[in-house]
Amino acid sequence: MPLPVVFIHGIRVSGTMWSPVRSCLTAPSAAPDLPGHGSRRGVPYDTDAACAVVAETIEELGGRALVVGLSLGGYVGISVAARHPALVAGLVAMGCTARPDWIGAGLYRIAGRLAAADPERADKMSRYGFRRALPGVAGEAVVEGGVHCEVMPSVVDAVAAEDPVASLATYPGRVWLVNGSRDPFRVDERRFLRACRHGSLTHIPGRGHLTVLADPAWLAGYIDGAARAVTGCACAA
């Protein structure tokens, strides 16, 4: 039996985002909501609190798991691997290979504050955008647990305060970096890859930042393979 998988969702959505992938997965899995998101709406967000949620979930699954995250989830996964390497048997980090910098962080802060100023309207626009980018089951899963744009400013501040490249360099386990070939967040992917002690880089042809979720069966197969690869591997701890 492969190790369990803990999935980490993206900004302003929830763990339901991963439901179609989880339904195709062989390995046991969990997809907790981060602070300020889904069932934890209203809980203050910071990186330490987000990492604590993931670490607690891993402990509940037996104390060791493959961690998979997309976008914000990928950045959180990197932070969890650096803070709790004994819990993270391996890491699949998707759509998160852009280093936070002052220009990008500034733009996202502006967008986050605009969204938080009128969260009802921003939530409605986000739901429309998610469903348009991912028609059908995948898009519905993204919005099923709620869309909560009011959390965006604190998330952007938290991500901007981290150094994901330095965090990757401290993690001794296996890392799979995965990006859609059209994802702008792959801009620093080679730098992230060089930081990994045991890393690989995979491109999903024709996919963008969110549309890597468009083929749940393929993605589940990829993640199952990663879970099998780290099961029983002492070097991943």
Rank of each mutant, 00 (worst) to 15 (best):
W176R: 14
G139C: 10
L177E: 01
V147D: 12
R197E: 10
V156T: 05
H198Q: 15
G173I: 11
A158C: 00
P184T: 13
P164Q: 04
T170R: 15
V178N: 08
D163V: 04
V155P: 03
S154C: 04
R191T: 06
T170C: 15
G199I: 12
G206V: 07
G206L: 06
G206I: 06
E140T: 01
M152H: 08
A138E: 12
P153H: 09
A169M: 13
G180E: 07
A158Y: 01
R174M: 11
C149S: 15
V143S: 11
V155W: 03
R197I: 11
P184C: 13
A138L: 01
P205D: 09
V159C: 04
W176A: 14
E140W: 05
V159A: 02
V143F: 04
D157W: 01
G199M: 13
I204A: 07
P153T: 09
P184A: 13
A138T: 07
D188C: 02
L168W: 08
C149Y: 11
V151M: 04
F192T: 05
G136W: 02
Y171K: 08
D163G: 02
G206S: 08
C196W: 11
R174L: 11
G180P: 09
M152C: 12
D163W: 04
M152Y: 10
V159R: 01
R174A: 12
D183M: 06
C149T: 15
A160N: 10
H148G: 11
A141N: 00
R197W: 13
P153Y: 11
L201K: 02
E150P: 11
A138H: 06
A195N: 08
D183F: 10
L168G: 06
H198I: 09
E162A: 04
V178E: 06
V142R: 05
E150K: 14
A141F: 07
A138P: 07
S200M: 05
E150N: 13
D157V: 00
S154T: 09
L177P: 08
V187Y: 00
V151Q: 05
G136H: 05
G180D: 07
G146V: 14
D188P: 01
Y171Q: 07
H203E: 04
P172A: 08
R182N: 14
V147R: 13
A166L: 06
R191F: 00
Y171W: 13
G146K: 10
S167T: 03
E189A: 09
R186T: 00
L201S: 02
V151A: 12
V159F: 00
G146R: 13
M152I: 15
A138I: 03
V151P: 10
D163R: 07
D163N: 11
R190W: 01
G199C: 11
G146T: 09
D157N: 03
G206W: 05
C149L: 14
V165T: 03
